[in-house]
Computed example of a mutant assay.
Amino acid sequence: MKTKILIVFFISVFFVSGQETLSVAAAFPQFIEFDKVRDFTMNQLGTEAYFSIQSQTEEISVITVVHKEAASWSQPKIVPFSGTYRDFEPFLSPDGLRLYFVSNRPLHDSISEPKDFDIWYVERSEKSKEWSKPINLGSPVNTEHNEFYPSLAENGNLYFTSDSPQAIGQDDIFFSEYIDGKYSQPITLSKSINSEGFEYNAYISKNESYLIFGGYNREDGKGSGDLYISFKVNDKWAKAKPLPIPINSKYMDYCPFMDEENHILYFTSRRSKNPESPMTHLGALKEFLNSYQNGNSRLYKAKINLSILK
């Protein structure tokens, strides 16, 4: 068992009028014992949250749930439908009655071999009820290619990542409209968002007024993966802009989720804090390896007024 070192840190920089400082904090420092923690989603009351826990090699990837009791979060529990295959990237629907996620599980119980990554969901009739067995979202969203990171607006419209040949680049953000209870043929979003490189992990606001997503090694980025935002103007997506430092860093920053009621952005980062002294003895090395900012995937949060970015 790793030594638990509970470190709550903040990184602040001067920003712009309307928001004097922008601070990034560890979202769940109490879960430092796990190697990789990522992919956050939460209900609108802020009392139920889901995220992925992975092994170092990511061969093990499970979805976990925590509940807020009084002012503190419970210990994470693996959800009943996860633990056999690689499950990650949960997204709780705005009404809290469906949980979407990504998995390589086979389509049928009689098949033991995993398949490519598809979007799945579980559902419940009431928020107090148990989740159903996983249901594959099916075509036209799921294909023989990989589909990742589902995010839904209040009207049911779906945004997700795919490496389909229809992509402009390597991975693109796709959109599928929800019409009469069915999803339309997905289309790739415009070059205001997608490029010839990798775009991924899109969070769509409930009213579809903005989209936050990840872009890899783009010219206007800070290095590695960065988070970008695009606003819808006259029913078209405006050219995406990178989110400011310290949300973006020279490290991999990805997997956004917005608590829209409280203006808090949750995201995953692999940032690493430079040791204050050389690693000349095992004590210092262990302290760094067991710290929150050690280069592993961790959850972070930042209170931000997105309207000043328009």
Rank of each mutant, 00 (worst) to 15 (best):
K68E: 12
S192F: 05
Q30R: 09
P106Y: 11
R86T: 06
F148A: 09
F31W: 13
V65C: 10
K301S: 13
G96C: 05
E20H: 05
P140S: 03
S110P: 06
P242N: 10
F91I: 06
F40I: 10
S190K: 06
L243P: 14
S125I: 00
A202F: 05
P140M: 01
E130R: 04
F34P: 10
E89K: 01
K191I: 04
K310F: 08
S297E: 14
Q44S: 15
R86H: 12
P76L: 08
T57I: 06
A202G: 04
I168R: 08
I60G: 05
P150S: 05
I308W: 06
F51L: 11
S190H: 10
E261P: 08
R86M: 08
L299C: 02
T21V: 07
L92Q: 03
E260N: 12
Q44K: 13
S190E: 09
R271K: 08
T268Y: 05
F231N: 11
I5M: 13
I187S: 15
P165T: 03
D95R: 00
N294M: 02
D35N: 11
R270A: 14
E196A: 14
L158H: 05
S224T: 07
N234P: 13
E123W: 03
K2E: 14
I187R: 15
S23A: 11
P246S: 07
Y216V: 10
S23C: 07
K129I: 01
L97E: 07
E154P: 01
P242H: 07
E89H: 02
W131V: 01
L265S: 13
E208F: 10
I63S: 10
F28G: 13
Y216R: 12
K68N: 12
F9K: 14
Y183K: 12
L265K: 11
V233F: 13
Y228N: 14
S128T: 07
Q185P: 09
